[in-house]
Write a protein that binds this DNA or RNA. Structure first.
Length: 857
DNA sequence: GCAAGGTC
């Protein structure tokens, strides 16, 4: 019997489609990667009985990157990234082992049906899947077709069956347009990012230049925020005048009227109108209009709308919101949260969905009323053909979801109920007056029926004082007429919700990537999120955007993405050649890059007035080994040491504290050592600022401190202070922290294992000799007579930390579980040496000869 | 260490 493999874009879709096509009778099992499932059932395919295997990938199988050697920032000129640097496809998520998984499932299959999402990305993934499985599938007989593409516009029985009965083939051009987009984004983004990062790196003391990124989506996103900032900065308040009139009738409280001319910008003109109006003490009613108006119920919920509301009303950032929504989805509380569609399909079970909510005390009353009176038809939205709108899938209580989970779920439920509720109806009453010959009016709203605002009370019509009952010709008495001076006010910073709207409008990012871009610009310190989730650009963000404005405004304008997309669409439609479009666009950006490169000084001028040069920042800490003058320690991120004499900057470990280490020097380069500490109770080790960036020995890498240094004789090196192999990790060595007394400890130089020992000893030293049983270096300990825990009042003892019975109770492992065989209390300790010969790496000091050899190269 | 796009 032949086998048909079917592949969807995500596990949840594979499941729903399999359920539809097998009429609920498939058997399911997990695939080898644990993430994807395989659903199997019997059926017919082009007239023959076959076995169906429905499975999925998890988004893209592959992602584009430069080949390895072009990822070295120090050796590659960013300009080479435009053409010279070759790219390759790598597995997008190596942990998922997707290619292997597809090959295991595809082996021996005769046909494949591609059920990837029906957009360009999906079309591209079709070919990624084919590249993986075609080599392992059965060979077709003759010219029989084996590859099919299902095109569906929604996940409903009818649509899925219609797609199955009318299979087409994957669209190569659409896939190619995505290949082109990937290559453009990669080459352009990385070239600009690397160049500007390296240019500004280490130049300014108070600038975090660890990464200054550029991208066709993130940069225009930042641009929007800075554009608003500029408007606020350049805003000049204008003074204007309005006439305030208060009138009353009988004993009713006075009404405040709005002036028909709204406002004037000339005081004298305003005064003239006031004088004119004041000639009358009567306000005559010209007309009374009453109009029934409606506030529309919301459209069904899609992703960007959910993100907007979550940010503006729930105070939850887009990235966080998506994390919560994904959790609610995987736990079965809501439908798939990434969708552009805000329209319910005709056969969507609205009533069933509503019924599930009938017992929740928060909205049971409204739900029951709707169920008995009948649901309103949801408004017509747009169907992007991806997924149904975001909808609650089952009832939940506050306790089972957690705080933010519940708040988001509650909103989704209320929004859903609102979509099937009536519009809110109210009466708008407007009374027009004339005082002398000037026109005034006042208006108010009264509720007719709340409709959907019953479940969304925050959108309800606010209760107002009732409008007076009157008719044309009535006369009110003027209580007060006065000229009021006011000022125009500047706009506020963009809110996240505003930004999402702008991005959507200009086609910057997608529903899935919008949160990522917003997150990026705030994580990288280009904007900060202020009260009310307003986005305020930082000095860095402002300088970057202004810098682009000065050199090449297109780099930051939102139109650039659209222009490139237009080119790409030509590939997708088969109207342009893939290679030609790619070359053409790369050429344009290559020229932009070179122009940017040549004029970077004009961006730097802006940097100079905003940030202080590195030489003027920081405080003197340790001496340079070359010029022997003090280097300055710059604490701001990324923390580093700068030698003004040599104009060199030396990087330091991040996330910790640095201080001078007793003015001791590195024997190799005479730089004064500094002591790095992770925190008050954390680990610490000395490091040489020069060796840290320039590893002195062949077996060392960048970023190593003295606790990993293989110097054969330096008293601070691993060779002198290393005690034994780590009890937890592979390859780590426990190194004595000579600064830790009287609470002595040794810490692993790879992982976070820490061993406390010999508290109150006044000296702890690593001896030359090794333990016969486990090869760890012996340790000599000196205690004060009064506080010695040693037997028989002894004050000195020397032995193996792991094996010596006297040391047993003086050693305590922290932050990790014990795995060192001879450290298990009462177990192998006395027998010793059980840990040997099991293929574990020997402790480093054994390699003293190798280290020596490297030293003398 | 970099982009943007899928998704877990």
């Amino acid at each position: 019997m032949k086998t048909v493999l079917m592949v969807a874009e995500k596990p949840s879709l594979a499941q729903s489609i399999a359920k539809i096509l097998s009429k609920g009778s498939c058997s399911s099992r997990k695939g080898l990667n644990g993430a994807c499932s395989v659903h199997e059932y019997m059926g017919t395919f082009s007239g023959q009985s076959v076995r169906f295997k429905m499975t999925s990938v998890c988004g893209h199988v592959m992602s584009l990157d430069f080949i390895g050697k072009y990822n070295n920032w120090d050796k590659v000129d960013p300009a080479e990234l435009f053409t010279k640097a070759p790219t390759e496809k790598k597995e997008a998520n190596p942990k998922l082992n997707m290619v292997k998984f597809l090959q295991v499932e595809g082996k021996g299959c005769d046909y494949v049906v591609l059920w990837l999402d029906c957009d360009k990305e999906g079309e591209n993934i079709c070919f990624e899947v084919l590249d993986a499985i075609e080599p392992v599938m059965n060979r077709p007989y003759g010219s029989e077709r084996t590859v099919y593409r299902a095109k569906f516009s929604s996940i409903t029985d009818t649509d899925i069956w219609a797609a199955m009965n009318k299979l087409g083939e994957p669209n190569r051009n659409e896939a190619l347009s995505v290949d082109a987009r990937q290559e453009l984004d990669l080459r352009i983004g990385c070239a600009f990012t690397r160049f500007q990062t390296k240019y500004f790196q280490g130049k300014y003391g108070n600038l975090d230049s660890s990464l200054i990124s550029f991208g066709p989506c993130q940069t225009p996103t930042l641009g929007f925020c800075v554009e608003r900032h500029d408007k606020i900065q350049s805003f000049k308040p204008e003074t204007y005048w309005v006439i305030q009139a208060k009138v009353f009738k009988g004993k009713e409280s006075p009404l405040t009227l709005d002036w028909d001319r709204v406002r004037v910008f000339d005081r004298e003109v305003g005064q003239m109108f006031v004088n004119m109006t004041k000639t009358s003490r009567e306000a005559k009613v010209e007309s009374v209009s009453k109009k029934e108006k409606a506030k529309q119920r919301p459209l069904a919920l899609n992703t960007v709308e959910m993100l907007r509301v979550a940010s503006s009303s729930l105070g939850m950032g887009p990235q966080h919101t998506m994390q919560i929504a994904e959790r609610l989805y995987t736990q079965g509380y809501i439908s798939y949260p990434r969708t552009e569609t805000n329209h319910y399909h005709d056969n969507f079970d609205l009533k069933g969905t509503l019924r599930q909510q009938a017992n929740n005390p928060f909205w049971a009353q409204e739900v029951k009323a709707l169920l008995s009176e009948g649901l309103n038809r949801p408004r017509k939205g747009s169907d992007a053909g991806d997924h149904p709108p975001i909808t609650p899938m089952r009832a939940a209580s506050e306790g089972e979801l957690g705080s933010d989970g519940w708040r988001l779920y509650e909103y989704i439920v209320r929004h859903f109920i609102a979509t099937v509720s009536q519009d809110c109806k109210y009466l708008q009453t407007t009374i027009s007056f004339t005082i002398a010959s000037e026109g005034f009016s006042c208006s108010g709203k009264t509720l007719i029926s709340p409709g959907f605002t019953e479940v969304m009370p925050w959108l309800g019509i606010p209760l107002e004082e009732a409008m007076p009952v009157c008719e044309r010709g009535d006369v009110f008495t003027v209580e007060e007429i006065k000229l009021v001076e006011r000022q125009t006010s500047p706009p506020d910073y963009l809110t996240e919700a505003d930004l999402i709207t702008l991005m959507e409008k200009h086609g910057i990012g997608t529903d899935a990537s919008i949160p990522v871009h917003i997150n990026n610009i705030s994580q990288r310190n280009y904007v900060t999120v202020e009260n009310g989730r307003k986005l305020k650009p930082t000095n860095l963000g402002i300088v970057l955007v202004h810098g682009y404005y000065k050199t090449d405004a297109e780099l930051v304008l939102p139109t650039i993405r659209g222009a490139v997309e237009k080119q790409l669409n030509l590939i997708a439609q088969g109207k342009a050649n893939y290679q030609q479009v790619l070359q053409h666009t790369l050429d344009i950006f290559k020229r932009k890059f070179h122009y940017f490169f040549d004029t970077i000084a004009s961006m730097d001028e802006l940097m100079e007035v905003t940030f202080s040069p590195i030489a003027a920042t920081g405080k003197p800490l340790s001496r340079c080994g070359k010029c022997h003058r003090f280097m300055k320690y710059i604490q701001a991120k990324p923390s580093r040491l700068h030698c003004a004499g040599c104009d060199e900057t030396y990087s330091l470990p991040q996330n910790g504290a640095i201080k001078l280490y007793k003015e001791l020097r590195c024997p190799l380069d005479e730089f004064e050592l500094v002591l790095w500490t992770s925190g008050s109770r954390g680990k610490s080790y000395p490091l040489c600022p020069y060796c840290f960036s320039n590893p002195p020995f062949r077996d060392m890498k960048k970023g190593m401190g003295c606790n990993e240094c293989t110097h054969p004789s330096c008293q601070h090196s691993l060779n002198s202070l290393g005690i034994g192999q780590c009890v937890e990790c592979e390859g780590g060595v426990l190194v004595l922290d000579p600064t830790s007394g009287p609470k002595w400890k040794m810490a692993c130089n790879r992982c976070n294992v820490m061993v406390h020992f010999f508290e109150h000893a006044h000296r702890v030293q690593v001896a030359q000799e090794s333990c016969e049983a486990c090869e760890a270096s012996l340790v000599a300990v000196d205690f004060n007579k009064t506080r010695s825990p040693l037997p028989d009042g002894e004050t000195q003892h020397s032995g193996c930390v792991f094996c010596d019975p006297v040391f047993q109770d003086l050693v305590e492992l922290k932050h990790a579980t014990m795995r060192h065989p001879s450290m298990t209390r009462g177990g192998g300790a006395r027998r010793g040496g059980r840990g040997r010969g099991r293929g574990r790496r020997e402790k480093k000091p054994k390699d003293k000869m190798a280290a020596l050899a490297a030293y003398f190269v």
